[in-house]
Design a protein around this nucleic acid. Sequence first.
DNA 1: ATTTTAGTTGAACATTTGTTCAGTTATGGG
DNA 2: CCCATAACTGAACAAATGTTCAACTAAAAT
Lengths: 195, 195
Amino acid sequence: MPRTINLNAKIQQLRFFLHRERRLPTYREMLDLFGYRSTNAVAGLVHKLVALGYILQDNEGHMAPTRKLAGVVKLLGAVQAGFPSPAEEELADVLSLDEYLIRRPESTYLLTVNGDSMIEAGIHPGDIVLVEKGVAPRNGQIVVAQVDGEWTLKYYMKDRAGVRLDPANRNYRFIRPRQSLTIGGIVRGVIRRYE
Amino acid sequence: MPRTINLNAKIQQLRFFLHRERRLPTYREMLDLFGYRSTNAVAGLVHKLVALGYILQDNEGHMAPTRKLAGVVKLLGAVQAGFPSPAEEELADVLSLDEYLIRRPESTYLLTVNGDSMIEAGIHPGDIVLVEKGVAPRNGQIVVAQVDGEWTLKYYMKDRAGVRLDPANRNYRFIRPRQSLTIGGIVRGVIRRYE
DNA sequence: ATTTTAGTTGAACATTTGTTCAGTTATGGG
DNA sequence: CCCATAACTGAACAAATGTTCAACTAAAAT
């Protein structure tokens, strides 16, 4: 058998370059990056990476990273299952949080949560909610709403008597808008960062 | 004064191309994209976008998108403040959730939460935790730990008697590892997606 | 109406791009 | 040890890349 190369190391180097420069290296840049002396060696490597689904290449030869390469975090199983062995880990799906959480980037916004009105739904003060504008809310969805002049986060509920906004906090009561109701958007996700 | 162009529309088109092709268009591709007939017009536009901080360009002319261009969601203020006017919105910071949540991509993993042992900390079953491996836990941090063979999510607490793992649920008691304790990683963030 | 000037055109330029070819090297398996 | 073959070298190629120049346009301001 002929010699075999360590692909994973090179993929890791590519990820580094990609996250630093925000683009894929050119063939000549890969020369330096991988220590090759011929662009043909690079061509062979790129061919392999295309076949493995790390790189896309159009008819003109323009390279673009796939999610598999540009993705940021490895999606493992459940907490109960713990961490898999390094060998199994290679098979883990690579994910981009942006793609996972945001379907319509042009109409999605981030807002910081202040109150504790949704705390029983796991939305705490300081959390960040992903709000999508311009979608009609359905019953049970969490919305950012302006009720009688004030913006809040509540469950949206429409019944025979009209719209009712429910908090997820036993200390608060539901609200029925008296004067005005504006639905800013619906909450598509929540993120929280720990120090 | 001479004529002025609508930059925002073009930036939006660039964002579209970028998220579809995972790379910036070349000058010739921008010809079609923007309806120009001279690459010099493109050069002028690119120059402007570089000056405004949307595009980076190295000495060889390679273009790379900045976070301002590649970012996905607009970061507004607090929920209480509601949604700003479209004019103010232009000034909003654009953010990538990947960059916001993940500091060390190579050692960060996603795990799905099963139990309700951390529910009072706002971590519900079905949520996804971002776990960073290879960092020593500090008191009060949430960790993924294997205690006597079983993986769980708990607060990490080290006192004179040794390590104690506290749940965020009044129905459960803290744990002191009898046989073995493995810290898989510390929880850096939580994400939740609504349907 | 005139001036001003950013925006645009069209064409040409030197480089750099990914590709290709024939030949060489290195390495694991028989 | 020797063989088979993937990996690599070195060099050359056409095509595509970003850049540059002088000339022209068009719209806002006076």
